[in-house]
């Protein structure tokens, strides 16, 4: 996020910002933390640490600007720096490997093209959630930020410290991976994914 003029807020201002601009996002923050850590206690710790950092560095937040994006950026960085190391989730496919694979020109789109709209419409919330949760963290994150939280590409670029072009291409790759998962769910539900 761009360098902002450091403020000197009074205690009253600080409390005001904290209560009216930071705390209203606690639901979204907890959901994001849970989808990163898959653990209730880790998610709680992560949200708590994020809010404490936000308070400590409140003078570098400009009142009235995008508090949600500012908080999400702190949470994401805390996760990378602290929680990812001790995360309880099993090892995932190496991100770089997947990114390179989906970046190549000869991706076989027929893998996902047979997933039907009707099959997706009939899926349950848990199935969608599980499919999302099974993606490697960098892909999962862009879908959460874009589709669940409604951030713009520009906001996502700031939260993730990547160029907008990378946001766009990573989202596209993440969606292809998600469709692979959904297709296998559709097959298990007995949908015929091969024929009209």
């Amino acid at each position: 996020m761009s360098e902002v003029q450091r403020k000197k807020y009074s205690d009253k201002d600080k409390n005001n910002i904290f209560d009216h601009e930071f705390m209203p996002h606690i639901d979204s923050m907890y959901n994001f933390a849970y989808r990163l850590t898959f653990d209730e206690d880790d998610a709680k710790d992560l949200v708590q640490d994020t809010y404490l950092k936000a308070y400590r560095f409140i003078n570098s937040f400009e009142k009235g600007t995008n508090a949600k994006a500012w908080l999400f950026r702190i949470l994401k960085n805390s996760f990378i720096n602290e929680y990812r190391k001790k995360s309880k989730q099993p090892a995932k496919v190496d991100y770089q490997e997947v990114e390179t694979y989906y970046n190549s020109d000869n991706v076989d789109y027929s893998m996902t093209s047979d997933l039907r709209v009707d099959a997706v419409k009939d899926m349950l919330g848990d199935e969608i959630s599980n499919a999302l949760n099974s993606l490697a963290v960098d892909f999962r994150t862009v879908i959460i930020l874009c589709d669940l939280e409604g951030f713009t590409y520009e906001e996502m670029a700031k939260i993730l410290d990547i160029p907008i072009g990378t946001v766009r291409s990573r989202l596209h790759r993440a969606r292809n991976l998600l469709k692979d998962k959904l297709r296998s769910y559709a097959e298990n539900m007995g949908y015929d994914t091969e024929e009209e």
């Binding site: 708590q48 404490l52 969608i128 469709k179 959904l182």
Partner: peptide, 30 residues
């Protein structure tokens, strides 16, 4: 297909309830 997937992500994705004591704990720590 992407339109439908986006819609179900928005509408159906399981929400996790924030533990009730979390907000109070944060305020106390502050």
């Amino acid at each position: 297909l992407e339109k439908v997937i986006k819609e179900i992500l928005q509408n159906k994705c399981t929400k996790h309830m924030v533990p009730s004591e979390l907000a109070a704990t944060i305020r106390q720590k502050i």
